[in-house]
Simulated scan of single mutants.
Amino acid sequence: MELDVFAAAHRSDWERLERLVRRRRKLTGPEVDELVELYQKASTHLSVVRSAGEDPALVGWLSGLVARARSAVTGAHTPAWRDFTRFFTRTFPAVVYRLRWWWIWSTVGSLAFATVLAVWVINDPRVMAALGPPDYIRQIVEHEFANYYVESPGASFAAQVWTNNAWVAAQAIVFGAFLGLPVLYVLAMNSANLGVMGGIMFAHGKGDIFLGLILPHGLLELTAVFVAAGVGLKLGWTVISPGHRPRLRALGEEARPAIAVALGLIVVLFISGLIEGLVTGWVHTTWLRIGIGVVAEVLFLAYVFTLGRKAYLEGETGDIEERPAAVPVAG
């Protein structure tokens, strides 16, 4: 199909539709009928243009026009609370479930790297010496690691870690567009910090303190980071291997759900931030604070593998809702 010819043939209808949409509150009866007719035509045209996949700018402009025309035709939109409910009961968990193998393998690889690094720190005195002088290491083990969680007021500390973790997760997703390579760097740095600190604490007989302070918030927090990294790696792989789709179209179809994941993880990381700021350093019963972290992690995984799986099997993709379906195009 010659897209330029197609667009030129229908441009006048689109421009007329745009003018009617702008005047939708002052339309006469015949103009309302014309608006409905042109909206139906534009929806079909959008399907054709999207199927061609040759002009993302035209697809974006025409999508916006069709969306505004739909609003003018229906005269109402879904209430915000319904959009909110649908997002957290279908869109977000479905995308996380669909991409589960990407973040599961990110989790496995990252934890394996952290474990190897920790074992190296524990068993090689030269590595421990390279990390700092003995007095510095002793200060970390006996004071700084535990004090980190109580040296600031709980609420402000929770806000601080939430902001930091949300930024890390956003980087992991956004960097995916650069072939996924920066995502691997983010994962490596995150795992290195975990492995080195764990190695230092275990080497000095403080492994119980390390796990007792990391697990309450770390289970959910690290899961969120690994989910973000998995989504970013999927974006990177889409750029490398878009399959049968044009590369820009494939990237767009993965990027839109990725944005949904980024928004959903803000809430997940808010919860882990609350646990880190209000539970990790302030609940002194070890089994209780670890139990809180385990419950939060189990609830998240159950949420993804029940609601997410159900929505995914029902066809939820996380892409833009109610876009016109593609139609067969000859030529």
Results as ranks from 00 to 15, higher is better:
Ser12Met: 10
Asp13Ala: 15
Leu17Asp: 04
Arg19Asp: 14
Val21Lys: 10
Arg24Cys: 09
Arg25Trp: 05
Pro30Cys: 06
Glu31Val: 11
Val32Leu: 08
Val36Met: 13
Glu37Leu: 14
Leu38Trp: 05
Tyr39Asn: 12
Tyr39Ala: 14
Lys41Arg: 15
Ala42Tyr: 06
Ser43Phe: 02
Val48Cys: 02
Val48Lys: 06
Ser51Thr: 14
Gly53Leu: 05
Ser63Thr: 14
Gly64Ser: 10
Leu65Arg: 07
Arg70Pro: 02
Ser71Pro: 02
Thr78Pro: 02
Trp81Phe: 11
Arg86Gly: 14
Phe87Cys: 02
Phe92Gly: 08
Phe92Ser: 07
Ala94Gly: 10
Arg100Asp: 09
Trp101Phe: 09
Trp103Val: 07
Trp103Ile: 04
Trp105Cys: 10
Ser106Arg: 00
Thr107Arg: 02
Ser110Trp: 03
Ser110Ile: 01
Phe113Ser: 08
Val121Glu: 07
Ile122Cys: 03
Arg126Ile: 01
Gly132Arg: 09
Arg138Cys: 01
Val150Thr: 14
Ala155Val: 15
Ala155Met: 12
Phe157Gly: 05
Ala158Val: 06
Trp162Gly: 00
Ala166Ser: 15
Ala170Cys: 13
Ala170Asn: 11
Phe178Glu: 00
Leu181Arg: 08
Pro182Ser: 04
Tyr185Asp: 10
Met189Cys: 03
Ala192Pro: 07
Leu194Ile: 08
Gly195Ile: 06
Gly195Cys: 05
Ile200Ser: 03
Phe202Gly: 09
Gly207Lys: 03
Phe210His: 01
Ile214Gly: 02
His217Phe: 01
Gly218Pro: 00
Leu220Thr: 10
Leu222Tyr: 10
Val227Phe: 02
Lys234Arg: 14
Trp237Asn: 12
Thr238Lys: 07
Thr238His: 10
Pro242Val: 04
Gly243Asp: 12
Arg247Gln: 15
Arg247Asp: 10
Ala250Lys: 08
Leu251Gln: 07
Glu253Gly: 04
Glu254Ile: 08
Ala255Arg: 08
Ala258Pro: 11
Ile266Trp: 07
Ile266Glu: 02
Val268Arg: 03
Gly273Phe: 04
Leu274Trp: 08
Glu276Pro: 05
Gly277Pro: 04
Arg289Trp: 06
Val294Tyr: 09
Val295Asp: 06
Glu297Tyr: 15
Glu297Ala: 13
Leu301Ser: 06
Ala311Leu: 00
Gly315Ala: 03
Gly318Asn: 04
Ala326Pro: 03
Pro328Phe: 02
Gly331Pro: 08
Gly331Cys: 11
